[in-house]
């Protein structure tokens, strides 16, 4: 009785491992393919059957990318935009989250509901006026012009309020008040150190979202000098003679740093993304 049953279970176990391995393989294959193309000459693309072995043009293809767009400038621009946006959002969200979690003031609940409702407005609704607003302010085709719209982040306030009310005990705040601490001092020296883990969560969410955003960056940026990496990459395929090796090389070098950071901190990444959506 128990013997055939055990065999059956191990059979289904094998099937499950096979299925998950196949899924992982399909998940990884485009990355591998990107690497193959990034190291192969353009002509490798016309061979039948397609080459599945990496070539030796890793450097040469990247040099072609550098001839097409200012890759490092674009990476730097994206990095600057994402860093500043992340810091600003962390500051604004934690301050407001702290206020919503710990202070009593008239209209608090209504205002918090308003914060939540702002999440529902799709970004495309404001796209055109935002474009003219940024252009009126003289920020069209500048990095600050890209940044400003990302400063609005209701999710950040929601997460921070949640975290502050769970992690910061009321007694601690009361005690600090008795000692004569100002509210901002309480924020700086009591609340901030406690909510640092939440900063990591929100920071990862904001940074990756802004890094990958395309529509707004594509709309605001015109001068190649100001391109972010996403806009620069999109330009690679806008040439008349499409060079797949060159395109994939650009994508490869733009993706590798991200993948390395992700693989190094994968648990933190995955738990952050989950928390950001499930809370």
């Amino acid at each position: 009785m128990s013997k055939p049953n055990g065999k059956k279970v191990s059979m289904s176990k094998i099937l499950i491992y096979l299925f998950l391995s196949l899924a992982s393989l399909l998940s990884l294959f485009p990355f591998y393919w990107m690497f193959v193309m990034a190291t192969s000459p353009s002509s490798a693309y016309n061979t039948i059957p397609p080459t599945l072995k990496p070539g030796n043009l890793l450097v040469e293809n990247f040099q072609k990318v550098l001839g097409q767009v200012d890759f490092f400038q674009a990476m730097w621009n994206s990095f600057v935009i994402c860093t500043i946006v992340t810091l600003v959002v962390l500051f604004i969200s934690s301050l407001a989250g702290f206020a919503f979690a710990k202070f009593k003031f008239p209209g608090k609940n209504v205002l918090f509901m308003l914060v939540l409702t702002t999440m529902i407005i799709p970004p495309q609704l404001g796209l055109i006026p935002q474009f003219f607003l940024v252009s009126k302010a003289g920020l069209l085709d500048t990095l600050p012009g890209v940044m400003v719209v990302f400063f609005l982040n209701p999710l950040g306030i929601f997460l921070m309020r949640q975290y502050v009310s769970e992690a910061v005990p009321d007694e601690l705040i009361e005690a600090a008040k008795l000692d004569g601490c100002s509210n901002f001092k309480i924020y700086r020296s009591i609340v901030l150190p406690i909510i640092l883990p939440a900063f990591a969560t929100l920071g990862i969410i904001v940074f990756t979202a802004v890094w990958g955003e395309f529509l707004w960056q594509f709309t605001v940026l015109r001068d190649p000098e100001n391109y972010t990496i996403q806009v620069a990459l999109a330009q690679l395929s806008n040439t008349r003679n499409i060079d797949f090796g060159m395109i994939m090389s650009g994508v490869f070098w733009a993706t590798v740093p991200l993948l390395v950071i992700f693989l190094a901190f994968n648990r933190l990444f995955i738990s952050s993304i989950t928390e950001g959506s499930v809370k």
Partner: peptide, 28 residues
């Protein structure tokens, strides 16, 4: 991690990789 990994790549990068995988060429 492997199943989650594609999410880390930007939409532009994904679109470019797929434009090569799924190009009009007979040899794609």
């Amino acid at each position: 991690v492997t199943i989650f990994m594609p999410y880390i790549t930007s939409m532009v990068a994904v679109a470019l990789i797929f434009s090569v995988l799924f190009s009009d060429h007979e040899s794609s």
